[in-house]
Design a binder for these strands. Structure first.
Length: 495
RNA sequence: GUCCCCUUCGUCUAGUGGCCUAGGACUCCGGGUUUUCAUCCCGGCAACAGGGGUUCGAGUCCCCUAGGGGACGCCA
């Protein structure tokens, strides 16, 4: 049987470097066996999924050079490849599980569940569904469901014993069933959760090897159970180490640029990014550090994957990117530069802003350089002349960051509305409120209009500039971050 | 808190019981080439988390401790 792997992003945000990381290893693994690599969109979270995000993720993955053989856009014989289009498949399988006793309907209310979890936490137990609806009379269960009573479907999990399974790079792992929750498989809106959908799809799509992030390791018992209940064989699993921030925590946008578009916009070469990602937890047998994805594929051996979480450190990526840029022949270098930012497409967004401000074409450059560049370097002194003190500036920037995480769509008007409401909530005049933001984003005293600038830059770039401005203002400790978070949610609740 | 995973220079890593006086790369520092800068070249700093075993021999195997991370959602 042909080797088939997949990457299964959830279209709930900006394209993430972690997705590219997992995609790279899946792609290389499949190719090294002459197999196929599939893209599946896991859009089962109705609230958070968006087609804009889906399109951005596919576009970004293609940019990195991680294309797929089958997927929502290119089709394939195992489609559809978008989970929201496979609802009847999941429903059918969930019904089968309920009928066979492998799962049960649960009519518990959210309040009851919350109270239960609170009690368990207080009693130092692992929060877990208590099985309240597990032994409902099947007839009653069916009747209540038929009568339209709101319910979910939960996986029936053994109460005692341990679940043993094997991970391709970690060996055998045992987890007590006691620790495994009776996971919801079908939500009350009829959509499946990840656990059901992923297992069903991986089986139906003929996925033979699953390479995914380590955060899934503790869900493995649930997944094994589902495979077993359906009588399906379990694909080989390999849990990839998680990319880390400098402090060792799971890589996050608050501390690192993690958006693929950031790397694209700041002029990293896709082949350099792939090479760098390959170095995260993997090495060439001959210890070469500069190699193409093709060379990686030819030499690939999953046994060479390490288990420790690598810190995603830009310094080495910068060096590597420099190596790639310098090795380009001049013609190609010129093409890359032209594709990067000084092209019609990018200019189209900028032209309306700069044309009126231009007397000679050369005036264009200083007007837009801060929009094309990496990030404006700011330091504490830049904030000194402002009406708000350093502490207040920091507070403003922090809260703006939080507000922007939830701002959608990312355009001029939404940004303006978001900022206005936040300034109101904080009781600050727009003028004072905007000043530190202007400095953080543009790094100047004179620049193109702030909201247009932010709209052009995009969420990733704005995020990273906010982060460096906050760092310039002294940064925030863990404790301070907590305090700011509380303060922010306080503001939201009032509004 | 409970369970699981992890632990070699600041960072990415090599290492699968003797080739380890622990190698390479990035960063940093010093020097050289270059009319500047960058590149490039040379050199330097720097690690087996701690403690017990097993063994003739342990970075490599086992146990304990510590530290880090992850999971514990009708998110994925």
């Amino acid at each position: 049987m042909s080797v088939r792997t997949r990457v299964a992003p959830s279209p709930t945000g900006d394209p993430h470097v972690g997705t590219a990381y997992v995609a790279l290893f899946n792609l290389v693994f499949a190719r090294s066996y002459g197999g196929q690599f599939i893209l599946r969109v896991e859009d089962t979270d109705r609230q958070r999924s968006s087609s804009a995000s889906e399109a951005a993720i596919m576009e970004a993955l293609r940019w990195v050079g991680l294309g797929w053989d089958e997927g929502p856009d290119v089709g394939g014989t195992f489609g559809p490849y978008r989970q929201s289009e496979r609802l009847d498949i999941y429903r059918h399988h969930a019904d089968e599980l309920v009928a066979s006793g492998g799962a049960f309907r649960c009519f518990c209310t959210g309040e009851r569940l919350e109270e239960l979890r609170r009690r368990q936490r207080a009693g130092r137990e692992t929060p877990r569904y208590d099985g309240h609806c597990r032994n409902l009379d099947p007839q009653e269960s069916r009747d209540r469901a038929q009568a339209g009573e709101t319910h979910v479907v939960r996986l029936d999990v053994p109460v005692t014993g341990t679940c043993g399974f094997s991970d391709g790079i970690r060996g055998t792992i045992e987890i007590p069933w006691q620790q495994v929750d009776m996971q919801v498989l079908v939500k009350s809106d009829g959509f499946p959760t990840y656990h059901l959908a992923a297992v069903v799809d991986d089986h139906l799509m003929g996925i033979t090897h699953i390479l995914r992030g380590e955060e899934w390791l503790s869900s493995m018992p649930k997944h094994r159970l589902i495979y077993d209940r359906f009588g399906w064989s379990v694909p080989d699993h390999y849990h990839l180490p998680l990319l880390r921030n400098a402090d060792g925590s799971k890589v996050s946008k608050r501390r690192n640029p993690t958006g693929l578009n950031y790397f694209r916009r700041t002029g990293y070469l896709p082949e350099a990014l792939r090479n760098y990602l390959a170095l995260m937890g993997w090495s060439m047998p001959d210890e070469r550090e500069i190699f193409s994805t093709e060379e990686m594929t030819a030499a690939f051996d999953i046994e060479r994957l390490t288990t420790g979480g690598p810190v995603f450190d830009l310094a080495k990526l910068d060096w590597l990117n420099g190596q790639y840029i310098r090795s380009l022949d001049p013609g190609e270098f010129m093409d890359r530069v032209a594709d990067w930012a000084i092209n019609r497409e990018n200019l189209a967004a900028l032209a309306p802003l700069v044309q009126q401000r231009t007397e000679r074409l050369v005036d264009l450059l200083p007007q837009v350089d801060y929009l094309l560049g990496d990030r404006a370097t700011v330091d504490e002194d830049d904030f000194a002349p402002l009406r708000l003190g350093a502490e207040d500036c920091l507070r403003v920037l922090d809260h703006v960051g939080r507000r922007f995480d939830a701002t959608d769509p990312w355009d001029r008007d939404s940004l303006q509305a978001a900022i206005r409401s936040l300034a109101d909530a904080m009781g600050l005049p727009m003028r004072d409120f905007l000043a530190p933001l202007f400095v953080a984003i543009t790094g100047r005293t004179v620049a193109l209009p702030l909201f247009d600038s932010m709209a052009y830059l995009g969420r990733d770039m704005v995020r990273s500039r906010l982060a460096s401005a906050i760092a310039a203002l002294g940064g925030v400790s863990k404790k301070k971050a907590k305090r700011l978070e509380r303060a922010y949610s306080g503001l939201i609740d009032q509004a």
